[in-house]
Design a protein around this nucleic acid. Structure first.
Lengths: 360, 360
DNA sequence: TAGAGGGACCGTAACGTTTCAGATTGTTTT
DNA sequence: AAAACAATCTGAAACGTTACGGTCCCTCTA
C-alpha cells in the first residue's frame, strides 16, 4: 500500500464495487448499514481520507466555491473598511449556502491572468474593477455564472450596485444649498495608471472605474446646473486609497486653490484624510471648510462626516445570493440598493455665503 | 456543437492531438507558433474557454489554493480586527505565491464537516479553533499540508504562534508591580459551549481554546507567585467577541466584586468594552480602575490601552509562507513570533496601594 | 404460487485534462 | 552517406470520482 488509497483500491480490498464505496460516503441509504460500516472501517484502516474533492468536482461539475475577483492587492481588501464590509456580506451569503469563498490572487501590477483560469469555482463575484481590466475579461471568458458589483452593466451579466449618480447628487445639492459655489473634489483612482494629480475633464469622462466615473459625472451635471463651470472645478485623484492619500490630495488641492470652500470626496477614507489636513492647516470644519465623503464607514460616523451611506454589507450579501441562487436564468438580474444621505457636522455655509440655491 | 467545447473536441476539429492543444496553452515552446495561433483562433471560434481548472487540478494534483479554517461565522472573521489582520497577512502570502485563498464555510453551530472535505485545496491553515472541533479533525484527516495557528502543538503539524504565557506574564508583572492584588479577568470563549458567566478554575484548566487556556494559566501562576489566591480571582467569560460583550462582562464582574482594582482582559476588544463600562460607572481609568488588553489592535492604540502587541499580520503571513513553501518536510516546523509589552495610559497604582511587589 | 415490489449492489461510461515515452520529420554533423 | 540531433507532433495511460441503467434476490401479496 505505498500509494495513497483511493476509492477504487478500497473497493478492491473490500471486494465490492466502487459505486458501493462511493455510496457509503454520499448516499448512506443506498447500502446496508453493516456494509457501510465495514467500508468506513476499512477506509480508516487503509488511511483512505474519503472521496477526493477535486475528482468529485470534475465528475459532479460543482466546485462548491464562489470566486471573488478584486484586482487589488488582496491584502488591500482587508485594509479598506468598505471592502471588508463587502467581504463580510459576501461571506455571509456563502456560509448560508455552505459554499467556500475563493479569493482570486489578482494583483493589478501582475498582468497574470492565469489565476482566474486556475480557480476551481462555480461562479465569480467581481467587485469594483476597472472595465478594461484583463482579469475581468478572463472571468467573462469562463463559462460560469458571474455577478458584477459597482460595475457598468455588462451584457447578460447579473449586477448589484447603487445609484451612484442619484446618491451623490443629493449630497451635492445639500452642499449647493448651503451656498457653496467654489468646490474641489477628491476622487479615487480613475484608471489602472497612476495619476496622483489634478484630473482633466477628459480623464474624468473616460475613467475606467465605473463608480468614480458615475460620481464625477453626476457632480459635474448638478454643479453645472447650479451655474458652476465644472471645467474650473479642481479634481484631484489618488491611486492609493488611504486617509494619508486623502490628506495629501487635500493639501495638493488647497495649495493651488485656497479659495475653495467645500471639498467633496468620493470616499469616506479620502474625506477623513481631508479632515486631517484641514486641521493641520488650522482650517476649522465646517466654518472654514466643508467636507463630505461617500460610503458611510464606521470611521465616518466617528468624525461625524456628512456622507452618503450605502449598504455595503448588503451589497456583498446580495451579490453572493445572486450568484448562488439556482434561479432560472431568464435575462440578467439587476439589483439596485438604496442609499441614504447622512448629515454630519462637517458641512456648513461658506463664510461669505452667496445667494442660496433655493429660496430661504 | 451543443455541448461546450473541450480540449478533445478542439483537437478533433483541428485534426491534431490533445497533447498539442494542451501544449498550446501550457507549453507554448513545444509547438510551432503558427499551429499555436491556429489552435487559439479555433478555440475562440468554438468558444473553448481554455483548459478546465478542475480537470487540470485532478491531473496535476495541484489546486492552486490554500484553505483557511476558522470555525467561526466567516462574517465574524471580518468584524474582528485581529482576525482581519491575520487574513491580511495570509492573503499577502498567498498573493505572493500566486495561489488563491479558499475560505472554508465552517460555522460553529453547523456540525457539518462536509465543507472541509469538499474544499479543493493544496493545504490548510487553521486559525484559532478549539482543539476538540470536528472541523479540525476533518482537516487533519485530509492528506494535505496543514499549518495551525494559535493552537497547541499537534503531532507532526507545522505551527505558528506566539508565547502567550511569556507575553501575558510580562503584562501581569507590570500590573503586580503597580501594586494590584485584587484583580479580575475577562476572557474570550473557552469552549464550544456558551458560558457567559464566571469561570471555575476547572473550566479554565480544561479550556479548549489553546490561547485562552495558556493565558489564563500563565496569569494564574504569576499571580499565585505574588501571593494572590487564584481561586479567589474572578474570571468572567464571554462567548461572543465584541466590545459590548466586554462591557457586559466587566459589569458582571464589577457588580459582584466592586473591590477589584485591575481588570486584565485576554483581548483588546474585551478591554475596550471594559473601558466603556468603567466610564459608564464613573470609574476613572487608571485612577479607580486599571485595565489591560491583549493583541495590539488599532483601537487599542486609539484609547491608549496598556496591552501586549502581537504581530498579527506577520502571523498570517508566516502561516501562509509555511504552508506554501515547498520546503523539504523533515519534521514539523515551528515559528514563534515576538510580542511587545505596550504601556498605555490605562494602568496605574491602586488607590490604596499595597506594598509593591518589587523594591521601590 | 405467480407476480409485483423493493432493497442491495454492480459495470460501464463518462468528467477533461496532463504526462510520458515515442514517432516523424527535416537539418546538421562527422 | 551515415549518424546524430533538434523541432514538432502523437497515442495511450493515467488522475479519482460519480451517474446511469441495470441485475439479482428476497419478501410480500393475492
Amino acid at each position: 500500500m505505498r500509494r495513497p488509497a483511493t476509492l477504487a483500491s478500497l473497493a478492491a480490498e473490500l471486494g465490492v464495487s466502487r459505486t458501493t464505496v462511493s455510496n457509503a460516503y454520499n448516499r448512506p441509504d443506498q447500502l446496508s448499514p453493516e456494509l457501510r460500516d465495514r467500508v468506513l472501517k476499512t477506509a480508516e484502516r487503509l488511511g483512505y481520507p474519503g472521496p477526493d474533492p477535486v475528482a468529485r468536482s470534475l465528475r459532479t461539475r460543482k466546485a462548491g466555491a464562489a470566486g471573488l475577483l478584486l484586482t487589488e492587492n488582496l491584502s488591500y481588501a482587508f485594509r479598506d473598511p468598505a471592502a471588508v464590509g463587502f467581504l463580510e456580506g459576501l461571506a455571509l451569503a456563502c456560509e448560508d449556502a455552505g459554499v467556500g469563498l475563493h479569493l482570486v490572487p489578482a494583483s493589478p501590477q501582475r498582468e497574470d491572468v492565469a489565476a482566474v483560469h486556475r480557480a476551481g469555482v462555480d461562479g465569480f463575484v467581481v467587485y469594483s474593477v476597472p472595465d478594461d481590466d484583463p482579469h475581468l475579461a478572463a472571468v467573462m471568458s469562463r463559462p460560469v455564472h458571474t455577478v458584477v458589483c459597482d460595475q457598468p452593466q455588462l451584457e447578460d451579466v447579473d449586477r448589484v450596485g447603487i445609484d451612484d449618480g442619484a446618491a451623490i447628487t443629493k449630497l451635492a445639492e445639500h452642499v449647493l444649498r448651503l451656498g457653496h459655489r467654489s468646490v474641489g473634489v477628491l476622487c479615487m483612482r480613475l484608471g489602472r495608471d497612476r495619476n496622483d494629480n489634478f484630473v482633466s475633464v477628459d480623464r474624468q469622462r473616460s475613467a475606467h472605474y465605473h463608480v468614480q466615473r458615475r460620481r464625477l459625472g453626476a457632480l459635474a451635471s448638478v454643479f453645472e446646473s447650479a451655474g458652476v463651470d465644472w471645467s474650473k472645478v479642481p479634481v484631484v485623484e489618488r491611486f492609493d486609497h488611504t486617509s494619508e492619500d486623502g490628506a495629501s490630495a487635500a493639501a495638493q488641492l488647497l495649495d493651488k486653490h485656497p479659495d475653495v470652500t467645500a471639498l467633496v470626496c468620493t470616499s469616506d477614507i479620502l474625506a477623513v484624510g481631508a479632515l486631517t489636513e484641514a486641521k493641520r492647516r488650522g482650517l476649522r470644519v465646517p466654518i472654514d471648510l466643508t467636507v463630505t465623503g461617500f460610503d458611510g464607514i464606521a470611521e465616518a460616523d466617528r468624525v461625524e462626516l456628512t456622507t452618503v451611506r450605502q449598504p455595503i454589507q448588503d451589497k456583498g450579501r446580495a451579490a453572493g445570493q445572486l450568484l448562488l441562487s439556482a434561479a432560472e436564468r431568464n435575462g440578467p438580474k439587476l439589483i439596485t440598493l438604496d442609499t441614504e444621505l447622512l448629515i454630519g457636522a462637517t458641512c456648513g455655509s461658506p463664510r461669505n455665503a452667496e445667494e442660496p440655491w433655493f429660496g430661504p
